[in-house]
Amino acid sequence: MTSKSKWLSAPYLLWSAVFIIIPLGMVFFYGLTDKTGAFTLDNILAITTAGHAKSLRLALLLSLASTIVCFLLAYPLAMILANMKVKRHNFIILIFILPMWMNFLLRTLAWQTLLEKNGVINHVLSFFHLPALKIINTPAAIILGMVYNFLPFMILPLYNALAKIDTNVINAAHDLGANHFYTFIRIILPLSIPGIISGITMVFIPALTTFVISSLLGGGKLLLIGDVIEQEFTRISNWHLGSGLSMVLMIFILINMVLSSIFDKEGEGSML
């Protein structure tokens, strides 16, 4: 490779500078100034006011819950898929990406139809004489919406990490006397940590910062931190406050990035 080929990175470098670094700088700039342009921490400290703190707490709670649910649903599934040793690796990935080709707002909206008091699910439940499900417009419905939207982002990294484990490594553990449970705890789980971290990141961050799912399934009364920021920008037009609150969100993103770089040094837990 010649040194000339380094110049090939120029377009991308320029692009990331203009569209990634500078815009982030602007968020910081707005977040740390007031309308007159003077330095202030008020926009960040605004998170401590009752309303904002409540929506941050709610967002943290719901996103944590949905991350846990996603993990618990996805891990067994990823293990089953990885054990199937399907030759068509891409096919499995496609099954979980395919739903994205139908607009996510519509898909989330469809859950309204399914969950409503007279919705499809309750019709089915009453047919089997089971009690009706009353979760629409509750936090539970928001969690369901988050799990629904972000589950593929948990499944794919887990599947990739688990499919990478050499069958002989698992065989070796059995060979040395480990039963299935011990092999899982000592071998499979630790070796899949990059996938777990990546999956958690891919679910937790979007769930924490979402603003549509809550208004679609939560009945519009439950404000998450994402909803608050969105309103600051599109309706109230207080960019300074919106930026300040965004910076608070970025703290969580940063923590997540640090954690993932500790556990996943080689970027093994990628989605693709």
Binding site: D166, N168, V169, N171, A172, H174, L176, G177, A178, I193
Partner: peptide
């Protein structure tokens, strides 16, 4: 009898060491 109950041990192709 499953492998973990057998009195023999295996050295695998490509070693299969526990990398973690």
């Amino acid at each position: 009898i499953p492998p973990n109950k057998r009195q023999l041990n295996t050295v695998f192709q490509k070693y299969a060491l526990f990398t973690h």
